[in-house]
Simulated scan of single mutants.
Amino acid sequence: MLTITDLSLQRGGVWLLEAVNLTIQPGQRVAIVGANGAGKSSLFQLLLGQLAPEQGSASLPGGCRIAHMAQEVAASSRTARDFVLDGDYDLRRMESELAD
């Protein structure tokens, strides 16, 4: 379960989150929507350990995964579909085995 406790996050002098509390239970699916600059990417950076909050905490138990795709990626000759599917290592391994 993802637990966010009393979380506050500020970027560039602007408060994106203030004293937020949230619990997402196993099996629940959520969507994060908001205007540009609302803090969606910053929240994911925080959950991935790439950013620290001003206060509070976010915790995931061991074995949990967060599926995400970087907002910007390096130029590539691969299609967007292949780029996304390449992230599923088991799928690509099975496809390779089937091809052999």
Rank of each mutant, 00 (worst) to 15 (best):
R93P: 00
D6N: 09
P53F: 07
E72G: 11
Q25K: 13
R65T: 09
A74K: 14
G12Y: 07
A67R: 13
L22N: 02
I66W: 01
C64P: 05
Q55D: 08
L91Y: 13
L85A: 07
E97I: 13
R78L: 15
H68R: 07
M1K: 06
A19V: 04
L98F: 12
L2E: 05
L9N: 05
E95P: 00
T79A: 06
L60E: 01
G56F: 02
Q28F: 13
T5V: 06
S8R: 01
G39D: 00
G62I: 11
Q55N: 13
V84D: 09
Q71V: 02
P61H: 10
S8G: 06
L60Y: 01
T5D: 08
G56E: 07
D82Q: 14
F83S: 11
S76Q: 15
G12F: 03
T5H: 09
A19G: 05
Q71E: 05
A35M: 13
Q45P: 08
D90G: 01
L9P: 03
A31C: 14
G37S: 11
L43T: 01
G39I: 01
F44R: 01
L51V: 13
T5L: 04
G62F: 10
L43E: 00
M69N: 06
R29V: 15
G13H: 04
A58Q: 04
S8E: 06
L7Y: 03
E72A: 13
A80V: 15
Q71P: 02
G34I: 07
S8D: 07
R65K: 12
L91H: 08
A58C: 05
A70D: 14
V84W: 09
G37P: 06
A74L: 14
D86C: 03
D82V: 09
M1T: 11
E18I: 03
P53R: 09
T3R: 06
A19F: 01
N21S: 11
L16N: 02
D82K: 11
I4L: 02
L9Y: 07
L98M: 12
N21V: 05
T23P: 02
H68F: 11
S76A: 14
R29P: 12
I32H: 04
G39Q: 02
G62H: 11
P61R: 04
M69K: 08
E72V: 13
L60W: 06
M94S: 12
G87E: 01
G87K: 01
N36A: 12
N36M: 12
E54T: 15
L16Y: 03
Q45S: 14
R29C: 14
E72P: 03
M1C: 08
I4Q: 02
Q10G: 08
G56M: 07
C64L: 05
D86A: 03
R78D: 15
L47Y: 05
L2V: 03
D88T: 00
R78A: 15
S96K: 10
I32M: 07
A38N: 04
L16K: 03
I66N: 06
V73E: 14
Q45M: 10
F83A: 12
T5W: 07
G49M: 12
L60I: 04
Q25R: 14
G62V: 11
R93A: 10
D90H: 08
